[in-house]
Amino acid sequence: MGGPAGNTHRLLTVVKSGSIQDVKASPGDKVHVWPHLLAAEFTAALFITAFTLVFSLFINAPLLELANHNETPNPSKAPWYFLGLQELLTMFDPMIAGVTIPGVALILLAFAPYIDRNTSLRPEDRKFAISIQTIHLMFWAVLVIIGSFFRGQGFNFTYPWDTGLHGIFHL
């Protein structure tokens, strides 16, 4: 039964690759970590070291007088990253300012991925999430700035130019 040239097999059809082989991973657009990523990381590390070093050469860390329980400085301020909380304490009951607001903010922040059910990454689809987070971050940033620069004696409102750089940064 052979063909014209004595062949015993014939090519009958062309099939799509998916029907006979299972392609699991597509190569995608990838680059080698070395040197592309490591070089960038190394540069960033050098930059931040240089920045910290130069900054430290010119500006000294504060060291005031020895701790004294009998002499309360005026104003007494928490570290700047907690000044938002201290600012809230001037406005609300301690239970609300010190516990409820930061507690709720932290829980909502931690559970954001389980609250936000929207799967899109595109900013135009995430207007609500982006707005609410921007308001949230700005809320803390503004409070920290007010607490750091606009609070003087007795934690009363003042202007930074009245306090002066030395008063603010304890230089």
Binding site: L64, S76, K77, P79, Q86, G98, V99
Partner: peptide, 20 residues
């Protein structure tokens, strides 16, 4: 352990005491 440290931490830890 200077005045800045003592009183900043005093303010910070006083807030902690408000936790129910």
């Amino acid at each position: 352990w200077d005045q800045l440290a003592l009183w900043a931490v005093t303010v910070g830890t006083n807030m902690m005491g408000f936790t129910p």
